[in-house]
Nucleic acid binder design. Structure first.
Length: 188
DNA sequence: AAAGAGATGGTCT
DNA sequence: GACCATCTCTTTT
């Protein structure tokens, strides 16, 4: 089941906890499908010192100022590729970072891509999700609400957790007081 | 179990 | 030239 775009046009801290339980799908041209249930996210907004959009629009973050439901992919520390879903109205500069998923389909492929990692280390971090789902910059700007696209997000009917664990965001040095990290319990 | 450091490259000042 | 929305490996307790 696809998700209505208006659902993503709300503010990131509202969308983020409700994104828990949604299905992230990535297909290769060879037809290999990897899918997982989103279990950890973080919200980033325009007036947020920790957000890429805090200092205004640049070539890198321009997708975040575009329409909701599209993918914002960025390279972290020169190595990792991290996937966000743009939220809010066009021009807002908001997104939700997908930090962790639970693999549902294509586990064999994920194990291959994440060679040498234990099961629990497969997709428990944004860079790890990027590797497991083979996300790269070519996906930047892709419409994640179109199920025909190689990478997309869908609603498989799993309800969001009743009491998501809320906590501080990770790896940032600003606005640590904003509790905009949401996770399906139990934590780690 | 915890702490430290290197990898690695695009982006912005 | 500095700074990262990270991960992994090594060293130390």
């Amino acid at each position: 089941m696809t998700i209505d775009r208006a659902w993503f046009e709300r503010d990131a801290p509202i969308v983020a906890p409700e994104l828990l339980g949604k299905r992230l799908v990535a297909a290769t041209t060879e037809g290999v499908i990897v899918a997982g249930r989103i279990i950890e996210v973080e919200a980033y907004t325009r007036d947020d010192p920790a957000s890429h959009t805090f200092r205004g629009q640049t070539p890198r973050n321009s997708v975040m100022f575009g329409p909701a439901g599209h993918a914002y992919v960025y390279i972290s520390y020169g190595i990792h590729r991290c996937l966000n879903v743009v939220t809010g109205a066009t021009g807002d500069g908001q997104a939700v970072l997908i930090r962790a998923v639970e693999v549902l389909d294509g586990l064999e492929t994920v194990v291959e891509r994440r060679a040498g990692r234990s099961h629990r280390e497969l997709t428990n971090g944004p860079g790890k999700v990027g590797e497991a789902f083979a996300i790269d910059l070519s996906h930047n700007g892709l419409d994640l609400l179109d199920s025909r696209n190689a990478v997309h997000v869908a609603d498989d009917g799993t309800p969001p957790p009743v009491g998501p664990v809320v906590g501080p965001r990770i790896g940032i040095t600003e606005a640590l007081e904003r509790p905009w990290r949401f996770r399906v319990p139990p934590v780690r």
